[in-house]
Design a protein around this nucleic acid. Structure first.
Length: 234
DNA sequence: GCGACAG
DNA sequence: ATCTTGTCGC
């Protein structure tokens, strides 16, 4: 586990964060198809919080995209540097997530984030921030709808319905398991929406949520508990 | 102006 | 995200 400080120049308030978001948005690359689904590596990212103790733990788990076997894991623990503000989630998660990513030795391949990319009020969510900041292809797979309306997709695995904003398809509600609530997929950086959905389906052979997120979720929770333990409990 | 709103 | 018991099911 690596322990981090907050990066110099990282926005500390909402106004500064919106400025940074706008600047990063200009470096967003759309229109690339991205890595072929089922090949190379895919990396799941997730974060757990203890606001009481001002602790945040992030995990990055690299999987073999074909077998879904774990290739490498890394974690990082830091201080909470930003409150949860809808639309600015990235600023709460990114410092620690980047530290965990930086601790990896394997090629991360496609970054699979917990949250949205293009499907965001300003078309630039967490997955897009992480893609742009690392230069890597990224997608967002969220467990809850944000501010988008959509038709219910069909009941079969693979059925989907567009998430619409201003008449544009900014993401998809994608059924990864028959008869189970869909996940919400959007493009982060340098990946097409079709491929983002194809990746998501391949990563979810058995459960609603992709294996990448499942691994990252359990790992960051463990990392948080370790950090809590090493600080003593009340 | 007020409410809703990824994690 | 997080707070939380039991419970149904493979």
């Amino acid at each position: 586990m690596t322990i981090i400080g907050i990066p110099a120049g990282w926005p500390a308030d909402e106004g500064a964060a919106r400025d940074v978001q706008r600047e990063l948005r200009e470096r967003l690359v759309l229109g690339e198809s991205g890595p072929p689904p089922g090949e190379g590596h895919v990396t799941g990212l997730d974060v757990a919080y203890d606001d009481e103790r001002d602790l945040v733990a992030a995990a990055a788990v690299v999987l073999d995209a074909r077998t879904l076997d774990v290739v490498e894991e890394a974690t990082a623990v830091g201080r909470v540097s930003f409150p949860y503000v809808p639309g600015l989630l990235a600023f709460r998660e990114i410092p620690t997530v980047l530290a965990a990513l930086g601790a990896l030795t394997a090629d991360p391949g496609l970054l699979v984030c917990d949250g949205y990319g293009l499907a965001h009020p300003r078309r630039f969510g967490l997955a897009s921030h992480l893609g742009v900041l690392t230069g890597r292809p990224s997608i967002g797979v969220a467990k809850n709808p944000f501010t988008f309306t959509y038709e219910q997709p069909g009941d079969a695995r693979g059925d989907f319905a567009p998430l619409l904003a201003d008449g544009e398809e900014v993401g998809r509600a994608l059924r990864t398991q028959a008869g189970v609530k869909p996940v919400y997929v959007s493009v982060g950086h340098r990946v097409s929406l079709d491929n983002a959905c194809a990746h998501t389906l391949l990563l979810s052979p058995r459960y609603r949520v992709p294996e990448t997120t499942r691994h990252a979720d359990s790992l960051c929770r463990r990392a948080l508990k370790e950090a809590q333990g090493s600080l003593g409990s009340v």
